[in-house]
Design a protein around this nucleic acid. Structure first.
Length: 586
RNA sequence: GCGCCCGUAGCUCAGUGGAUAGAGCCCCCGCCUUCUAAGCGGGUUGUCGUUGGUUCGAAUCCAACCGGGCGCGCCA
């Protein structure tokens, strides 16, 4: 109810002006949801905030403002409580009017953005020399979720997959394969990605131990960057393999429309980036490397800390390609908002990159650049999650285990209830529930904090989990089936009547959808969506217990059917923002 | 050593300037002749890491300290 909040704000600002005259124009009135339902729906603490400025006790201000404010068409009489809180209880007739206004709108009354922004979400970004592992799950899921929310809000969204497809890691791999498995570099399908991963490991080991091999690897990098056809072809085969494997994971996660634009894309722009920084007077040569010294960062001795943009050997590192990427996104693509969905441990890398880009004058002031950081996925030991053997966990395996566990649970449940479902539907259920549970668990936690990965908790079917939301949805579909009703064909003339408290609570929650969307685009916290959906599902389940739908007399029956319809749309839409699908039956 | 993030109920976590700090899990009790009980209702649980400070008001802002995670000059 963003419009209601705006209206309340305006009315209180007018009342303030009329009570205290000029000078009160500058008073910003904050309207917030009531801290406790017993106090009503909204509250304003303006009397407390302005007490000092107006040199009056809060309660006196509250009295004066209430005497002036006109809210008859919206609320019951405002009440003053405690030290000077003003509590507002919105009239049921007002809620009825609002819910009836959106009753046939699948967007729940939410308008698309008046001024769509060009938004780039950088997400996933796996290292193409390796398989995707558990470390990629958060960036992929959170990034996709934010992209979906921005799309829903009507913005122009690009999901950029900034893959690691360049630099030393590939030189090293090509050098190693040239030696032990030359076929891999000339035939597209000579090795599998699994082989590639073990080759990568061996190559890395060799690289760390063997100076001669390091030289050879660096030469391969130079060849690659210089466009040597042999090396380039080998590089392309490696990428093909890797891409194919990554696609399996993206399909499982239902993440689409990724635009792969890796580090290699910016290769040609790197010299320009350095020249730009030189022109801007930011570039300093130090110990043979080209650097930009940072503001607000110190090195270990407390001295100035540089961001190295060109190494002493003339090569470039990832700071340069990240600068090139940022410059390209802002100056060529004209992005107005760039979200970097990247782990929190990169804060000391991205902060300097943003700083240098701004100091170079590439980024207009109104462009929003955010490091959407997230914590580590930990094992039970509180360290980065690994297998018992100390290996990284493949993302594909992790998702498969989620589906397997969901499938097993489902089978035993169906057997217990003597139900039969088609194999196709069972697969669909196992996937929706298994993948949904993994995604939901991650998205329901505040992204900033680390979390301990726990399959049992993740796949638990009660509490704030995906299945709880999906089940509420299934219950609604059940009503539609049982009553042989088509929600989309309910009579246009029918009205929602909010007679019971459970109906009123449900309607209010439905009308809060727009506030949730706004919060998420502001704070970039997907857990707010989960919180909203959990409350919505709880309110629906309470409604379901206390308010019989199909057996109710008209016009209550149709009124409740409309509420069911709207709730189903809200859950479906909300889950779709998380990238989770709904089921007709469970 | 320096920097960033985190510390809230037995466990997992919400809550980032306002009223008596919330939810889920766990545990106990009650509710299926009625739209799927993967549900609903009721009950127990707190030095908000510690100590100071700012404020009419602090879990929330500031400082120091303690504990945990992560990172730190030419890998990405």
């Amino acid at each position: 109810m963003l419009d209601l909040v705006d209206t309340l704000k305006l009315r209180f600002e007018e009342a303030l002006k009329s009570a205290y005259g000029n000078g009160s124009d500058s008073y910003e009135v904050a309207i917030s949801p009531a801290s406790n339902p017993q106090f009503g729906d909204y509250q304003t603490n303006l009397a407390l905030t302005l007490s000092k400025q107006l040199k009056q006790p809060p309660r006196a201000i509250a009295e004066a403002v209430i005497g002036k404010v006109d809210l008859k068409d919206i609320c019951e009489k405002p009440e003053i409580a405690g030290p000077g809180f003003i509590n507002l209880k919105v009239a049921t007739s007002y809620w009825e009017e609002k819910i009836n206004a959106i009753k046939s709108d699948p967007r729940l009354g939410i308008a698309k953005a008046k001024h769509p922004r060009k938004v780039i979400v950088e997400l996933s970004s796996p290292n193409m020399a390796k398989e995707m592992h558990v470390g990629h799950v958060r960036t992929t899921i959170i990034g996709d979720c934010l992209a979906r929310v921005y799309e829903f809000a009507g913005h122009d969204v690009t999901r950029l997959n900034h893959v690691g497809d360049w630099g030393t890691q590939f030189g090293m791999l090509v050098a190693y394969l040239r030696e032990v498995c030359p076929d891999a570099l000339t035939k597209p399908d000579a090795i599998s990605l699994g082989d590639l991963v073990s080759f990568y490991r061996q190559a890395k080991k060799r690289f760390d131990a063997d100076a001669e091999f390091q030289n050879i690897s660096r030469q391969e990098v130079v060849k690659l960057q210089g466009g040597d056809p042999d090396t380039l072809r080998a590089w392309k085969y490696l990428l093909e393999q890797s891409r194919h494997e990554a696609q399996i994971v993206y399909d499982l996660l239902d993440v689409h429309n990724l635009i792969e634009r890796g580090e290699s894309f910016y290769n040609e722009q790197l010299p320009e980036v350095v020249r730009d920084l030189q022109k801007a007077g930011l570039c300093v040569e130090d110990q043979g490397a080209k650097c930009v010294f940072l503001e607000g960062y110190k090195n270990e001795q407390g001295g100035p800390l540089p961001l190295i943009i060109q190494k002493s050997d003339g090569g470039y590192n990832y700071a340069t390609s990240d600068l090139a990427a940022l410059r390209y996104r802002v100056t060529v693509e004209r992005a107005e908002e760039i979200l970097y969905v990247v782990a929190a441990d990169q804060a000391d890398h991205l902060g300097p990159v943003y700083q240098v880009a701004r100091r170079a004058g590439w980024v207009p002031d109104n462009v929003r650049i955010e490091h959407v950081q997230f914590g580590v996925v930990q094992g039970e030991d509180g360290k980065k999650l690994k297998t018992r053997a100390g290996e990284t966990i493949r993302l594909k395996d992790l998702l498969q285990e989620g589906m397997d566990r969901a499938r097993a649970e489902l089978e035993s449940r169906l057997a217990q209830e003597g139900r039969t479902e088609s194999e196709e539907y069972k697969q669909q259920m196992a996937r929706a529930i298994g993948i949904g549970a993994v995604k939901y668990f991650d998205l329901s936690l505040n992204r900033i904090t680390n979390y301990v990965f726990n399959f049992d908790k993740m796949l638990s079917l009660s509490g704030n989990t995906a299945p709880y939301m999906m089940y509420a949805y299934v219950r609604i579909r059940g009503i539609e089936r049982k009553g042989e009703i088509d929600f989309s064909k309910l009579p246009a003339s029918a009205k929602v009547i909010l007679g019971e408290p459970v109906e009123l609570d449900l309607a209010k929650q439905l009308l809060a959808f727009d506030e949730m969307i706004e919060t998420v685009t502001r704070d970039l916290l997907p857990n707010r969506i989960c919180e909203y959906l959990f409350e919505l599902s709880q309110k629906f389940n309470q409604f379901y217990e206390k308010a019989q739908v199909l057996s109710a007399p008209e016009p209550v029956r149709t009124s409740r059917l409309i509420l069911c319809h709207l709730t189903a749309e809200a859950i479906k839409t909300g889950l779709s923002l998380l990238g989770i699908s709904v089921l007709e039956k469970m």
